[in-house]
């Protein structure tokens, strides 16, 4: 069953100098128990998409979508109160810098206890104290914090970033959500803590059938365990499909450049040999080129590229390019 189904999500920002389309007609669908990755460099709008899904974008942004279904319910049509209820029941989000998203003046125990829903308690009101304690302990154990007593009684600044992120995850899974949105959860962490967090998310996905939407700018981190990936460039979805397929046969020049810029995957590259990299830089939001936004930087660009390419779909592999690198037979089921 489709858990999340988004069609033509557009996010615009109104400024003095005109409308900036930060996210341009994105499609995304997620099945239960899947791990999807949203990959893109800074300014590609990946965090905006996550915020639009949970509905926390501020008033300056205008979000429109043909369809934003959550288990068959259109989130765009719900009243804000109802939408918040649905979101808080079924989704959870973790952020980039865990130590900044935790309350610095409250102990970890209080913060985790706060995130426990009232409905999860079985005992009467007066017997809740010990039940709450046990639940917090269980949650902390679940995310791999062995020393639960010490962690629960300390403040966020006394803990390392890795432990803070684990606490964030513990708080996120307290309501056992169906979808966990992880917005670059490991950028602030070092490699060992990073691996721990990934293992944790992976096991949560496998054991609890929790869907994960991973947002990241590092390709190599997510390749081994995500089912599908979506590559974004400047707010346009350039390529989407099963991870392995996108990796082995990228159709879009940008995806190819991303894959080739990884030291591990650029095999056959001698020591100290230059990487393959696109020329130029990511354009600022105010100066996005028309048509395919990769246009000016694309090595294969031709005249047609000033028209925004439609998304072509071959099996489950979608790409938006006039001149795909791998020519597969298109089945003309454009969406």
């Amino acid at each position: 069953m489709q858990l999340l189904d988004i069609r033509n999500l557009t996010i615009e920002l109104h400024t003095e100098s005109g409308v900036i389309r930060a996210v341009d007609r994105i499609n995304l669908s997620l099945k239960e128990g899947e791990v999807h990755a949203l990959v893109g460099e800074s300014g590609s709008g990946k965090s905006l998409i996550a915020k639009a899904i949970v509905g926390v974008l501020n008033k300056r942004w205008r979000v429109t979508a043909d369809r934003m279904h959550w288990q068959g319910v259109d989130l765009m049509r719900l009243s804000p109160e109802k939408r918040r209820k649905v979101v808080s029941r079924d989704m959870a989000m973790i952020y980039q810098e865990p130590s900044r998203s935790l309350d610095p003046t409250a102990k970890i125990y209080e913060q985790v206890a706060e995130s426990l829903p009232d409905s999860s308690f079985k005992n009467s009101f007066f017997a809740r104290g010990s039940e709450r304690k046990n639940k917090v302990k269980a949650l902390l154990h679940k995310v791999g914090i062995r020393d639960d007593k010490k962690v629960a009684s300390s403040y966020p600044h006394e803990l390392s970033e890795g432990v803070c992120q684990k606490v964030m995850i513990a708080m996120a899974i307290a309501r056992s959500p169906k979808l966990l949105i992880a917005d670059e959860p490991t950028t602030a962490l070092e490699s060992i803590a990073k691996a721990q967090i990934f293992r944790l998310l992976k096991s949560l996905n496998q054991l609890k059938n929790m869907s994960v939407l991973m947002i990241s700018h590092e390709l190599e981190e997510i390749t081994d365990w995500s089912h599908a990936m979506h590559v974004l460039y400047c707010g346009q979805m350039v390529e989407a499909g099963p991870t392995a397929k996108v990796f082995s046969t990228p159709c879009h020049p940008y995806t190819q450049a991303l894959v080739k810029s990884l030291p591990d995957y650029a095999q056959g590259l001698a020591h100290k040999e230059p990487f393959y990299a696109l020329k130029g830089t990511i354009p600022p939001l105010q100066h996005l080129p028309i048509g395919c936004r990769l246009g000016p930087r694309c090595p294969q660009a031709q005249k047609q590229c000033v028209v925004t390419p439609t998304q072509s779909k071959v099996h489950s592999h979608t790409y938006a390019c006039h001149f795909p690198l791998v020519k597969e037979k298109p089945k003309c089921n454009r969406s």
Partner: peptide, 17 residues
């Protein structure tokens, strides 16, 4: 840095070296 920018920067560093 973002991966593609990092690739550019690494290339530049190696070239200078």
């Amino acid at each position: 840095l973002d991966p593609s920018v990092r690739a550019q920067t690494v290339n530049l560093l190696l070239e200078l070296q």
